[in-house]
């Protein structure tokens, strides 16, 4: 190699590592939160995050720049979670230290009570797409347009679906409250 020329292979690899580092540092927390909110335990969440960034590593050239990188990663994480649920075997666990750190440092909140618990219960009765749309907006803080990108639907479809999902959720929450109240009244009457 002549002096001054560049070994593109080795440099390309280091370039990728620099880009990966930047992506991980800028988006890692958001992906951790996304995974923790949707899977049962911290080890599974670490799996999801590690798999998501594995895919990002393999497709680094496709990852958008700026804020859209997060939406791209959400879409990947979403599919990763879907496959995790379907998979009958555990993949080789990546990111062991990540899993350990999540266990020790990032304990989830205690189980919610009251209206929050009702909301979670009602969410379970929604369809997958509606539920995910609501959570992307409520928990991940995305706009309807951004959520549309993650779900690969049009903005118009996302907005109208979001509106319907909120109405349905409200009805489920109120219906649950009514049922709970009626159940409570019956219990009280039987106790007499």
């Amino acid at each position: 190699m002549a002096q001054g020329q560049i070994e593109k292979g080795a440099l390309g690899h280091e370039l990728a590592q620099i880009q990966f580092s930047r992506l991980y540092r800028e988006q890692g927390r958001a992906m951790l939160a996304y995974a923790l909110r949707r899977v049962g335990d911290s080890e599974d969440a670490a799996d999801v995050v590690a798999e998501t960034f594995l895919i990002a590593w393999r497709r680094l050239a496709e990852v958008p720049v700026g804020a859209e990188a997060r939406l791209w990663l959400y879409a990947v994480a979403r599919r990763t979670i879907a496959n995790l649920h379907r998979s009958e075997r555990r993949r080789t666990r990546l990111g062991g230290r990540l899993a350990e750190s999540l266990r020790t440092e990032l304990a989830t909140q205690p189980a919610p009570a009251g209206e929050a618990a009702e909301a979670l219960r009602a969410m379970g009765e929604l369809g997958d797409e509606d539920r995910e749309l609501l959570l992307l907006v409520a928990w991940e803080g995305l706009s309807p347009n951004e959520a549309a990108t993650v779900l690969n639907v049009s903005s118009l479809a996302a907005r109208s679906r979001l509106h319907r999902a909120r109405r349905r959720l409200r009805a489920l929450i109120e219906g649950g409250n009514t049922a709970a109240h009626r159940s409570s009244e019956l219990d009280t009457e039987e106790a007499r």
Binding site: A33, Q109, A138, R166, L169
Partner: peptide, 20 residues
Amino acid sequence: EVEAALAAADPVDRDRLDQF
């Protein structure tokens, strides 16, 4: 109120996430 209930149900401790 629906949004507020959902936000309250967030299982992630945001402060701890922030410090991670």
